[in-house]
Amino acid sequence: MTATGSDLTSIVVVAADSGPLLGDCIESVLAARDALELVLVDNASGDGSVERVLAVHAHDPRLRVLRNQSNLGFGPACNRGAAVARGDVFVFLNPDCIVRRDLCAALRATLASDPEIGLLGVQVTDPDGAPARGNRRREPTLRRALCSLAGLARLESRWPALQGVEMPPAAGEGMETVEAVSGACLVLPRAAFERIGGFDEGYFLHAEDLDLCRRVRDGGWRVAIDPRIRVAHAQGASSRSRPLFVARHKHRSLWRYFTKFDPAARNPLLRAVVFAGIWAHFALQAPLLALRGRRRAAR
């Protein structure tokens, strides 16, 4: 069994042709002076981004690189990173995020303030500092998803029954209990992560963060967000070169989440309608996404 480190924060970053922003992410993490280790899991990148990171930081003993022979997906790669990590707190960070030097200390202080927190989110912002969408989310039930898709969620302040998946930005700066947080930066005590079995490897990409939040709550812990802790995220930067690939896995993951957790999936008719709707939506998007991908590849 891998030895664990008390007061050691393990930051896990998964790379998959993540481009130049990966170097900026690694640079920002290693600029901290907190007790941390950085586990970089490479999902068979072919763009040279991991090699560029090693050329700069190979001498830093806090950096460890795991190489997969193929792209295993985000959740499975996170699990492999966690399996070799030694810290008592895990941070799963997207490769296009930039963090502040005091990130680990701030996260640990928040976790220490409430032992019932099993998963902590932060205020994810765009590079200019504006809060990103999806920092505070509700569980994506069928009803909420339909309200969001139809635009009815805009009326939820007047009619709460029309609430959608995304919640508006927090009014205050205090920590808050929510159903789900942004997957760009997920923070878990090691004990909680191991007890729920880590990420569900049935997801390749997308919705694995929602699944993790749901299972943390089912395990009796709180999912919380601390908006005082900020992480800048160039949202989608690591997936713009392959939009059709990403969209296909996103739709597949939404179907998995629906059948796994939503009571509506027990109804055979609703199940069939949702399946048809998810893949019809993908089919309508596919031609434009394929064209976009070809244009980016030609640049």
Rank of each mutant, 00 (worst) to 15 (best):
residue 154 R to I: 03
residue 171 A to M: 10
residue 189 P to N: 03
residue 176 E to N: 00
residue 167 M to G: 01
residue 172 G to C: 08
residue 135 N to S: 08
residue 110 T to S: 11
residue 195 R to L: 09
residue 158 R to C: 09
residue 199 F to A: 03
residue 167 M to W: 07
residue 155 L to T: 10
residue 167 M to A: 14
residue 138 R to S: 11
residue 192 A to S: 14
residue 118 G to Q: 07
residue 120 L to M: 06
residue 177 T to C: 06
residue 147 C to F: 12
residue 178 V to P: 05
residue 126 D to E: 11
residue 113 S to T: 09
residue 122 V to T: 15
residue 191 A to F: 01
residue 157 S to Q: 14
residue 153 A to G: 12
residue 103 L to Y: 00
residue 118 G to C: 04
residue 144 R to P: 11
residue 164 G to K: 04
residue 135 N to L: 08
residue 164 G to P: 08
residue 99 V to T: 15
residue 148 S to G: 09
residue 185 C to S: 02
residue 197 G to T: 06
residue 199 F to M: 13
residue 113 S to F: 09
residue 195 R to S: 15
residue 138 R to L: 12
residue 114 D to Q: 03
residue 153 A to P: 00
residue 191 A to W: 00
residue 142 L to K: 02
residue 125 T to M: 03
residue 181 V to R: 02
residue 179 E to G: 02
residue 196 I to Y: 09
residue 178 V to D: 01
residue 175 M to H: 03
residue 156 E to K: 14
residue 163 Q to G: 10
residue 193 F to E: 07
residue 181 V to A: 11
residue 122 V to R: 08
residue 110 T to V: 15
residue 129 G to W: 12
residue 139 E to C: 10
residue 123 Q to L: 15
residue 197 G to V: 05
residue 200 D to S: 13
residue 158 R to T: 13
residue 177 T to S: 08
residue 151 G to P: 13
residue 152 L to Q: 02
residue 131 P to M: 04
residue 183 G to W: 06
residue 200 D to R: 10
residue 138 R to I: 01
residue 178 V to F: 06
residue 104 C to Q: 13
residue 161 A to Y: 00
residue 156 E to M: 10
residue 153 A to I: 00
residue 179 E to V: 01
residue 199 F to D: 05
residue 152 L to N: 06
residue 106 A to T: 00
residue 187 V to W: 08
residue 153 A to M: 01
residue 137 R to N: 02
residue 124 V to Q: 05
residue 199 F to P: 08
residue 111 L to T: 04
residue 152 L to H: 04
residue 188 L to Y: 03
residue 101 R to M: 10
residue 182 S to M: 01
residue 116 E to C: 00
residue 199 F to E: 07
residue 140 P to S: 09
residue 135 N to W: 07
residue 155 L to P: 07
residue 129 G to K: 10
residue 169 P to M: 08
residue 191 A to G: 09
residue 174 G to K: 13
residue 179 E to W: 07
residue 185 C to F: 06
residue 149 L to G: 04
residue 98 I to Q: 15
residue 116 E to P: 00
residue 175 M to E: 14
residue 137 R to S: 06
residue 154 R to Q: 13
residue 183 G to H: 03
residue 184 A to P: 02
residue 199 F to I: 04
residue 186 L to V: 13
residue 195 R to M: 11
residue 165 V to E: 14
residue 148 S to Y: 01
residue 121 G to D: 00
residue 154 R to C: 07
residue 193 F to R: 04
residue 118 G to A: 07
residue 157 S to G: 12
residue 176 E to D: 04
residue 192 A to P: 02
residue 167 M to P: 01
residue 184 A to G: 15
residue 142 L to G: 02
residue 176 E to A: 10
residue 135 N to P: 04
residue 132 A to Q: 12
residue 178 V to G: 01
residue 160 P to V: 05
residue 98 I to M: 14
residue 127 P to G: 03
residue 135 N to V: 08
residue 156 E to D: 14
residue 165 V to F: 07
residue 152 L to G: 05
residue 193 F to Q: 02
residue 127 P to M: 02
residue 184 A to L: 07
residue 130 A to V: 13
residue 117 I to V: 11
residue 136 R to L: 15
residue 127 P to H: 03
residue 133 R to W: 11
residue 112 A to I: 01
residue 100 R to C: 06
residue 152 L to K: 04
residue 114 D to I: 04
residue 157 S to T: 14
residue 200 D to N: 15
residue 140 P to D: 07
residue 157 S to E: 14
residue 163 Q to C: 05
residue 124 V to R: 04
residue 153 A to Q: 11
residue 143 R to V: 13
residue 190 R to L: 02
residue 170 A to I: 01
